[in-house]
């Protein structure tokens, strides 16, 4: 090449190189890099979506499996209600005593107590596995934040599964014939009623000539005295105080009930 044009050619080449380099490094390459990053993020989101879809399928299976089981709500309502129906349980005992023709000599409603629930390794609980299926959150693009909050955030804690189970012990003493006493226990334990778990039973013979029991017929050979403790159970006991009546107004004292004698004899 003519040496006169060489500088121009060199400058042109330099300018081309500079333009191409600047264009590549400052404009084109960053955009391609951004595009590659977006593509990588899209693949990450896609993988995450696939995982979430798998979790959804598992949850659907859990739901189907649970729906296939016989529900326990009725059994719970019947055997472990939230409140103890005082009138109902008293009526149940009195009716049983009357039907069985035994003499009910004592009922004692002892104080209720919390039953320490059985424990199980949380890992063995399906709800733990299910909670884990909600652990995956969204993958969010760079520079953005997610306000996503998982609907299930906690696995079941370590400890008892049932934490608010209460037992109400009722102590009962009856006397009567052996057959009638067994009938009383049978009526009391009928399965179509709230569970009344008879636990400790003390049976003593009450032969003829035994000491008199107020209100009970004279003892005969074969008669027995049965003392036992039964338990009612309440799940999630409701201790709300309910007063069905309205506000208390002025009440005039009538005839004194604090008297004894024939007027208030036990029938």
């Amino acid at each position: 090449m003519n040496s006169r044009y060489a500088p121009i050619a060199a400058l042109t080449a330099l300018a081309v190189i500079v333009v191409l380099a600047l264009g590549w490094f400052l404009a084109i390459k960053p955009k391609f890099n951004d595009a590659a990053a977006l593509q990588a993020k899209a693949e990450e989101v896609e993988t995450n979506t696939a995982m979430i879809t798998t979790q959804t399928a598992k949850l659907a299976k859990y739901q189907t499996d649970l729906e296939a089981l016989a529900p326990l709500d009725d059994l719970i309502t019947a055997n472990a209600p939230t409140t103890l129906d005082i009138q109902a349980y008293r009526a149940r005992i009195f009716t049983a005593a009357k039907s069985a023709d035994v003499t009910l000599t004592e009922i004692a409603l002892s104080g209720s107590g919390v039953v320490a629930g059985w424990e199980i390794d949380p890992a063995a609980r399906p709800s733990t596995s299910i909670a884990k299926l909600f652990a995956t959150g969204p993958v969010v693009p760079e520079g953005t934040t997610s306000e996503y909050q998982a609907p299930v955030t906690q696995a079941p804690p370590q400890g008892a599964v049932v934490t608010d189970l209460t037992q109400v012990p009722v102590e009962i003493t009856i006397t009567g014939s052996y057959a009638n006493a067994m009938k009383f226990l049978r009526i009391l334990g009928k399965e179509d009623q709230q569970l009344f778990l008879v636990s400790d039973v003390q049976i003593d013979a009450r032969p003829q000539g035994s000491s008199e029991i107020p209100g009970a017929p004279d003892a005969e050979d074969g008669d027995i005295i049965v003392s036992f403790t039964g338990f009612f159970y309440l799940l999630h006991p409701d201790s709300t105080v309910v007063d069905d009546g309205g506000p208390l107004g002025p009440v005039s004292p009538g005839k004194s009930p604090f008297v004894s004698g024939d007027e208030y004899k036990t029938k």
Partner: peptide
């Protein structure tokens, strides 16, 4: 997908309830 999955949140509650019921019935 998240919305669909999270619509199953009730499954967790249902199982937790079922576990409580099973343990309560069994224990009493």
């Amino acid at each position: 997908a998240l919305n669909k999955r999270d619509s199953y949140a009730g499954v967790h509650t249902a199982y937790a309830t079922r576990e409580t019921q099973e343990f309560a019935l069994t224990q009493i």
